[in-house]
């Protein structure tokens, strides 16, 4: 087993340019379904690319493509920082 992971943080706190690994998706219903099928599953590496001009939503790169998620929705996704 690998050493214990650091404490998970919500995805919306990951700053632009940083990479993180998804630990859990704490959303329900529609949001959960959509996140899972778009590839935001535990273990996925997700990178924060840019923030929209008005401060929300945020564009992320996951599984080789880009998608935008609102900060409120991203806060349901727990991640740990990925060290390069």
């Amino acid at each position: 087993m690998s050493p214990p992971d650091p404490l998970p943080i919500p995805l919306d706190t990951v700053i632009t340019g940083e990479k993180a690994r998804v630990v859990s998706v704490r959303a329900k219903g529609q949001l959960r379904k959509r996140l899972l099928e778009m590839g935001i599953i535990p273990g996925a590496i997700i990178e924060s690319i840019r923030v929209a001009p008005l401060g929300d939503p945020v564009e992320f790169r996951v599984k080789g493509y880009n998608l935008s998620i609102r900060k409120g929705d991203a806060s349901c996704i727990e991640v740990v920082m990925e060290v390069e």
Binding site: L31, R34, M38, E59, N66, L67, I69, R70, D73
Partner: peptide, 8 residues
Amino acid sequence: SSPFIMEM
């Protein structure tokens, strides 16, 4: 309103 998860 519903979640906004959109491919770019």
